[in-house]
């Protein structure tokens, strides 16, 4: 395996509950990987392994290997703050900070030591342009981020992630609270972003997975049942359980 992100024999337990069962997968750089599966199947848990968000949950135990560019994410020497700079995350509900649009973007670079005002201005503009939001907000950068629509807030959150120049962007159902127009804008944005970033997206929307992703992984009851090129998964899945799920034959 030689992916940007890799997991080998990954098991995760919430107390006694076995949430991830022996997951082996390799996620390639500059591709969009979609994780699908019914609620509670482990896809979000798996996503959170890549930037150690599960560390924040009590009674979590992890076995096996999770690596970024071959480096062990769970090594004692790993600086979690630095890891989360390299592996950014966007959540289901847009969660802008209670700050101005400008300060939402500037927050990360400042936290990581950038003090030069003009450098920060450059980062703010570049990130907002990267998230296809600049033209809509350039005249109101000092306004509260809460004045933006839901779709704009989610793009702001993506811009905020881009501002610290991550290598990987994790997205956990980023469009589930958005209307179709805002959803399509985010999807277009992801397609534009993938030449620079490794993107992993958890989605309940199979059509979103089929529209944007290069690879798709199907999770069921903590197992990665099938992982492969998206077109193959949706046209001719190899496993009957994948077929049943994507055809809506159970649930």
């Amino acid at each position: 395996m030689c992916g940007k992100l890799e997991t080998r024999d990954l098991n995760l337990y919430y107390g006694k509950a076995h949430a991830l069962k022996g997951i082996n997968a390799s996620i390639s750089a500059c591709e969009i990987t979609a994780l699908i599966g019914p609620s509670g199947c482990g896809k979000s848990t798996y996503l959170r392994c890549f930037n150690r968000m599960n560390d924040l949950i009590d009674n979590v135990r992890i076995e096996g290997q999770v690596s970024l560019d071959g480096g062990d994410i769970y090594a004692k020497s790993t600086d979690v703050v630095h890891l989360r700079k390299r592996v950014g995350m966007v959540f289901q509900k847009p969660n802008p900070f209670p700050l101005s649009i400008y300060d939402n973007i500037a927050y990360g670079p400042r936290l990581h030591g950038t003090r030069n005002v003009s450098a920060i201005e450059d980062i703010v503009e570049k990130s907002l342009r990267g998230a296809a939001l600049w033209d809509e907000v350039k005249d109101k950068l000092r306004k509260s981020a809460f004045e933006l629509s839901g779709g704009q807030q989610q793009r702001l959150c993506i811009a905020r992630v881009m501002a610290v120049e991550p290598e990987v962007v994790l997205l956990d159902e980023p469009c589930s609270a958005l209307d179709p127009t805002a959803t399509f804008r985010i999807e277009e944005l992801l397609l534009e972003m993938k030449c620079k970033y490794t993107i992993v997206i958890v989605t309940h929307n199979m059509y979103q997975a089929s529209r944007v992703s290069d690879k798709t992984g199907f999770f069921l009851m903590g197992e990665l049942i099938e992982f492969g090129p998206t077109a193959s998964i949706f046209e001719k899945p190899q496993d009957e359980r994948t077929d049943d799920y994507i055809r809506g034959r159970f649930g």
Binding site: E235, I246, R247
Partner: peptide
Amino acid sequence: QQPLSADLR
């Protein structure tokens, strides 16, 4: 119905 897999085929 937006069919997939065998249904689409």
